[in-house]
Amino acid sequence: MPGEGPAPVWPARDTRIAGVHTRVRETGGTPAVAYVHGLGGSALDWTDLGALLAPDLPGAALDLPGFGGSAPLRRYSLAALADHVTAWLAALGPVHLVGNSLGGAVTVLVAARRPDLVRTLTLISPAMPFLRPWQSDLGRLAPFAWLPGTARVLALTMARLGPDGLTRQSIESCTTDPASVPPDRLAAFRDEAERWLASPWHADAYVRTFRALLATFLRPGAGSPWSYAARIAVPTLVVWGRDDRLVPSRLGPRLAGTVPDCRLLVLDGVGHVAQVERPATVAGAIRALVDEHRAA
């Protein structure tokens, strides 16, 4: 946060959600906001945004199965991930739900299927299916996802990069200005990467989750996240970085036109993780959405 330094990492606790060991981080207080991270991320991705909202909107963020400190699922699909998040929210009660990238696609399903658990929805560069995916950094990796031995090759590659290289690669692909990420936050990401790389399932969980996401690109019609987006009945905010290299910002207007009650915020000079690059701006937009919901 400008002038104050990075927010401290939220305390973590381990719990079981739908029978799966899951790590959850909370700002303190009864959670009013629930956060769902993207592919390869963790609850740490929400540290600064959640700290800005926490004074009157306490937050909770989970590590999706197979990431951070959470155990993997037996079977991966977008629907299975949505079921996991839904089970978590059922214990929290209705919340303002926020998702980024993969977490954005997951929360689209959650909000469409269980509007009783969602007060408002904020989607930050959600990984919605799009045409010509090979023109994005995300799509160029797709042909390798189903090759035999992909998880083993990925594990070797990650081991060679180590936590420092993995963190650097992630920051460079997700942000427009890696130098804007404070050293303390980078150190926290690096430590999380080291813990995740030590888990026996990290590469397999990544590959299977990536395949589950890519499968949505091949599923038009009723099973597509786009069909779920059209059924969302809660007030929604879509935030996109204009310089997103993973999921193109051109999807923002389309998504805003698909969700019945939606607002769109496109940020110049921002990449795939607006909550990391511009937490104050995103926090202000979420507050405006929550205030509008309360007034209504």
Rank of each mutant, 00 (worst) to 15 (best):
F210W: 11
P200S: 08
G271C: 08
I232N: 03
R219P: 00
E194K: 15
G269L: 11
V234M: 10
R231K: 14
P200E: 10
A179M: 11
A179V: 09
G241F: 02
R190E: 13
L214K: 10
W196R: 09
P220M: 06
A193R: 15
A188F: 14
V239E: 02
P260Y: 10
A203S: 11
D191K: 13
R185Q: 12
A193M: 12
T176D: 09
A203Y: 12
P178D: 06
P260A: 01
A198N: 12
R263D: 06
F217A: 05
V207E: 00
D243V: 02
S224L: 12
L265K: 10
H272P: 04
D184H: 13
T176I: 07
V259K: 01
S199T: 13
P225E: 02
I232G: 01
A198R: 15
D177C: 06
L213A: 10
V234L: 07
V238W: 04
R245D: 01
V270Q: 02
V266Q: 15
S227R: 15
Y228L: 09
V266D: 05
W201K: 13
H272N: 11
Y228P: 03
G257N: 09
G221C: 05
T236D: 01
R245P: 01
P248R: 08
V247W: 08
T209W: 11
R254E: 10
P253F: 01
V247F: 14
L246V: 06
R211F: 07
P178L: 03
R185I: 10
A179F: 14
V239Q: 09
P253W: 03
A179R: 15
V247H: 13
D261V: 07
A215P: 06
L237K: 04
Y228T: 10
W240S: 07
W201V: 00
A222P: 15
P220K: 13
V234F: 04
G223N: 07
S224A: 12
L267V: 07
R263S: 09
P183N: 07
V239M: 09
L237C: 01
R208K: 15
G221Q: 08
V239G: 00
T258R: 14
R219K: 13
L197P: 01
A229V: 07
A230Q: 13
S227C: 12
P248T: 04
L264N: 05
T236I: 03
P225N: 10
A203F: 12
A205P: 03
R185D: 05
G223K: 08
C262H: 05
R208Q: 11
A179Y: 14
R245V: 00
R185G: 00
A215K: 12
L246M: 14
A205Q: 03
R250L: 11
A256G: 04
R219C: 03
T236R: 07
V238P: 03
V247P: 04
L214I: 09
A215E: 09
L213G: 03
R195M: 08
G252F: 04
H202C: 00
A179S: 15
R254I: 08
Y206D: 05
A205W: 05
A205E: 00
W226V: 02
V247Y: 08
G271S: 03
L218V: 01
H202A: 01
R190W: 12
R211L: 02
A229D: 03
S199H: 15
H272E: 08
V207Y: 01
L186D: 06
A215T: 05
A222W: 14
P253C: 09
A179I: 06
W226I: 02
P220A: 07
V181C: 12
D204Q: 14
P248H: 07
T216H: 06
S249Q: 09
W226F: 07
